[in-house]
Amino acid sequence: MKANRKQRLITVLLILATSATGSFLIIRALDSNLDFFFTPSEIFKEEIPNNKRIKVGGMVLEGSVLRDKTNISFVITDYQGSINVEFDGIVPDLFKEGSGVVVVGYLRDKTLVAEDVLAKHDENYMPPSIDIKN
């Protein structure tokens, strides 16, 4: 390989390395700010002011869903911690006991008053006739 060509190859690699390190540092600095939601156990570890809008994600605890007209209350859990949620509105179709949700809302005495409930689904796809293994 010719000398100047080699030099250009090194330049290309340098560009790649610099931008990779740069973004790595930015991402490290932002860290948890890039998370879309927190888990219930993370929420109680830190003090969260009442006026801060938070997103909490986890599983809807089985048997915890109570409906009263348009009001719905349930518990979301990550099997280490859990939190009560109250919501007045329409939940997505995929909202089910035992399935994933992300709740957007405010904390009011250990209860999450939801503004919005989003359903989270996993990466598994299969026809309904096949039973879920594991």
Binding site: D35, F36, T39, N124, Y125, M126, P127
Partner: peptide
């Protein structure tokens, strides 16, 4: 990060998380 978007269904290392007919 925690995302609303689900992880990949098809990866090089693992068996696909999507049924064969699909």
């Amino acid at each position: 990060w925690s995302t609303l978007h689900q992880p990949a269904s098809i990866t090089i290392s693992d068996k696909p998380a999507i049924d064969l007919v699909m």
